[in-house]
């Protein structure tokens, strides 16, 4: 039961969406783009989201693509996670996405919505951070393409009225060896205690994390330390642990200290599985 009313628009083109946003913003409607719309509903019902104009991006053709274009795999932002999993072009993404929420919900949750989510796990961003993907964004000033690692700091840095159209990933990353492990408080249901995703590019292991801090991240510092082959794994992991960003989450899923314990073992596993020892 949403305790507020809004106008609902379903634009068919990028331009229409941008225009609708601007008009609504001008009319002080606090417009909101949605794609899966699950946050609008679940956060709206407990008063954590409010809007008077909803702009649903699901009918925009550019947001629905999923294909290889040249050297890139391009994935539209409004595709549901289930769709992405069933197609399985990017196995690391498939594996990571398949641990988000539950199967039925993933039929509604979309890639763009998860990457731009207010709920801070945003697990599906991890593969793209690792693969140095490009984000395709549109806004009042037109379309721009940027490396995700330039634009994603804790969350995707979007200007007012901008939204994510696609994510493009170079083929060589799509097929690289990977690990993706989601560890929960208990058994197989729930938010991550920690999710770690890792890619091996050449001899280098890349690692990105969700659930450790109140945002997902990939840290160059942590990677450098983990890849220091001069040192035994133990030391690499220890030094990486001392270079983590903060704060470490301390909540109902687990205490900060416990998360560090879990992370230590996960990092060992990642290095082991990816043969970086």
């Amino acid at each position: 039961m949403l305790p507020f009313d809004f106008e609902y628009y379903k634009p068919a083109s990028l331009k229409e969406a941008i225009d609708l946003y601007q008009t609504a913003a001008k009319n002080r409607k606090k417009p909101m783009f949605i794609s899966g719309g699950t946050e609008l509903i679940t956060l709206g019902r407990i008063n954590l989201v409010h809007t008077e104009a909803v702009i649903d991006l699901k009918d925009i053709a550019e947001c629905m693509v999923m294909q290889f274009e040249g050297d890139y795999l391009v994935i539209g932002s409004t595709l549901s996670l289930t769709k992405i999993e069933e197609t399985n072009h990017f196995p690391l993404l498939t594996k990571t996405a398949s641990e988000v929420a539950d199967h039925t919900s993933r039929g509604k949750i979309t890639l763009g919505g998860n990457i731009c989510a207010q709920i801070f796990y945003r697990e599906t961003v991890l593969p793209f951070l690792l693969a140095d993907s490009q984000v395709v964004i549109v806004g009042p000033s037109g379309i721009k393409v940027s490396p995700i690692n330039n634009l994603f700091h804790e969350q995707l840095q979007l200007g007012t009225g901008e939204f994510l159209i696609q994510v493009a990933t170079a083929k060589r990353f799509v097929t690289a060896p990977f690990v993706s492990i989601k560890r929960r408080q208990q058994w197989d249901t729930g938010y991550p205690l920690i999710t770690v995703a890792a890619l091996k590019i050449g001899e280098e292991v890349r690692v990105a994390l969700s659930g450790l801090c109140p945002f997902p991240f990939r840290s160059k510092k942590v990677e450098t330390l983990l890849n220091n082959r001069e040192w035994p794994i133990e030391d690499r992991v220890n030094s990486a642990l001392s270079e983590l960003p903060g704060p470490i989450l301390n909540d109902v899923e687990g205490s900060a200290e416990y998360r560090l314990f879990v992370l230590r073992n996960l990092l060992h596993d990642v290095l082991e599985v990816l043969g970086a020892s």
Binding site: T38, T104, K108
Partner: peptide, 13 residues
């Protein structure tokens, strides 16, 4: 033909 949690979908969707 796919399962959908009808509480997660707006009627207009």
């Amino acid at each position: 033909d796919w399962p959908m949690k009808s509480c997660l979908m707006l009627a207009v969707e």
